[in-house]
Design a protein around this nucleic acid. Structure first.
Lengths: 341, 341
DNA sequence: TCGGCTTGTGCCATCGATTGTGCATTGATG
DNA sequence: CATCAATGCACAATCGATGGCACAAGCCGA
């Protein structure tokens, strides 16, 4: 079983059979010792120790493919994420990975560029690798992913954007948007003597944006300011879309307001590009709100208020639901941490 | 073989044996048809079509665990990344995933928090899942990862930070730092009438930071400005470290310069926090350079110049080396795109 | 009509790890 | 000394997909 060695590189990996031969015992003993249930199999401490030593010397690592096949349990868990272009998804991924590892699971994460086809393709690939469940984060079509998972008999969960066919954990978009909008309106009134509504930019009308717009409206009502219906622009998240939308707005709606509610940091990028090009002093004459947090923005600008979604609490809730294992499709809403700046 | 169904969820996945039974044929025919080499096995178009239809109806997905075990080829490729707290690593991961998928490979990526132990643990886990190679990006100890991979007989590659035991692709840190430093020195001279050296903040002396410091020195020499050796502070990348370092510098070195070379966007975060707290008008009286690019910073500040590392070209080079399959441990240096702002 | 060739399929061993089962020892007890 | 339980371990089947090989059926020319 021991293989030829070329240039210090083994052409073949060490298996439990190799270790068994080296230790003068059987593969089943090796397996039992190395995966920890050797006491159940009444293997002597002496043999266990010898096997462990030899495994160590050989730098043995289980073949998880074989293990998973036999156990019918892969210990792999999957997460689908839209993009890595912002701190929000970045921190979700970092935390998810860590929490998976803490539970002895192996996380595989893939970003799908907000592309529904890629999402489906990624989910199918994960199923082929026998993931134990899939978390669809900010998916464009969460229910489709749930359907695919259900057909394969594995669970799925939604994060950041809700679906109707799996449990969902998301921010309190209504509350967060309401608070943020109120703070921006207030600052425009106090600091810039602007008693006008805000422009709403970014996001897709079909997803959490609807709830945020509801919060946006509620805040205007709270402050007794009339919402400008023609200035609510759910143009998608991409920076360029936001930039174009504002260019268009300023060309076609002469009496538009100046403050803004921007629906993500990536949309904010487009907004800032537009500001730099077309309204370079806007940030000195009006406040902007951004639903999502970026520390660099926070440190560089006085007049951009942000809400920070509470990633740790969201992921705690997610893993609690994963552990619970019941079949209700509950929706858990987590309040954002706070609006800052 | 067909399993009981509960609540619309199959408790057991469909296998090629199930499909074979449904199609009235053998598992080997199903396998051959579904993985595309049915022509070699002279399976009739008619049977192939029937099998494909049934597989489709059943929503069949191969068990990659079984397939990989048998083929002795997982089609999984691994990448290790420090953190997701900046756009640079984010774009590396996005691009790597896409390029892996384009090649029919399944990427698994894990972030290791700049923790050497986690890096090793992650590499071992990937090896257990039989990855075909590992790319260590910005690793704190690339050679250790190379050693582990070599012991398992699989290839490894270094990205962003070089190692001596595997091919490496990285930015031209010397050239990039030299250009950036020169531009910042120039701007300090032109715009702020400061003819003084820069403070260097962030990074670890053992890694690419050394080359950047070399470029930093060269630029000072180019401009005939003496480097302040007591103001070169490779305090690590973490934001807090940079913040503390500057606090300490301003307390203990009274005649320090004011412009800065900051070694990453995450260090910049600490620098900006410190500026906001302790020197709120610094950005109006001195220019800062940052080795790494963040579009939001670019749009919000006039006086922060940045270099953008050329991720697409770096990854093209990486995959070229991966495809080449030769054993030299070459180091490829890619010039950054440009300094902007 | 018979051997030889092509075509189309099925059988079975195999990948490496896991686990139910069974079989020797050993020591204790009557 | 016989009996029995406890102890320590090995054997072999199994997970699902793959691919070498054998084999049957059909066809052709001699």
């Amino acid at each position: 079983m021991v293989q030829p060695v070329a240039d210090g590189i083994q052409t073949k990996r060490t298996t439990i059979y190799d270790l068994a031969a080296l230790a003068g015992t059987s593969a089943s003993a090796v397996s039992a010792v190395l995966n920890g249930n050797w006491k159940k199999r009444r293997i002597s401490e002496k043999l266990a120790e010898r096997i462990r030593r030899i495994a160590d010397e050989q730098g043995y690592a289980v073949n998880m493919q074989a293990s998973a096949l036999r156990r019918e349990r892969s210990r792999i868990v999957g997460m689908i994420v839209p993009m890595y272009d912002n701190r929000y998804f970045g921190s979700i991924v970092e935390k998810f990975e860590q929490m998976a590892r803490d539970r002895g699971l192996f996380p595989i994460i893939t970003c799908t560029q907000r592309d529904p086809d890629l999402e489906v393709q990624a989910a199918r690939a994960m199923l082929s690798y026998q993931v134990e469940f899939i978390v669809a984060t900010g998916a464009t079509d969460p229910d489709h992913i749930s359907d695919i998972c259900r057909a394969a008999g594995i669970r799925s969960f939604n994060l950041d954007l809700p679906g109707t066919k799996a449990p969902s954990v998301l921010s309190d978009n209504f509350g967060g948007a309401r608070t943020l909008t109120r703070q921006v309106l207030q600052r425009n009134r106090d600091r810039f003597a602007r008693n006008e509504p805000l422009v709403f930019v970014g996001g897709r009308a079909v997803d959490n944006t609807a709830e945020r717009i509801r919060g946006f409206r509620a805040a205007h009502a709270d402050m007794e300011i009339a919402v400008r219906e023609d200035c609510i622009i759910a143009c998608g998240y991409a920076a360029q879309k936001a930039e174009q939308a504002l260019t268009h707005l300023y060309q076609t709606v002469p009496d538009h307001p100046h403050g803004m509610f921007v629906n993500s940091t990536i949309s904010l990028e487009g907004v800032l590009r537009w500001i730099k090009k077309e309204q370079p002093d806007l940030l000195q004459t009006a406040a902007i709100g951004c639903f999502d947090f970026d520390p660099l923005v926070d440190l560089l600008s006085e007049n951009i208020l942000m809400v920070k979604q509470d990633v740790p609490t969201m992921l705690d809730a997610l893993w609690r639901i994963i552990a619970e294992n019941n079949t209700t499709h509950e929706v858990v809403e987590i309040p954002p941490v706070a609006a800052v700046s």
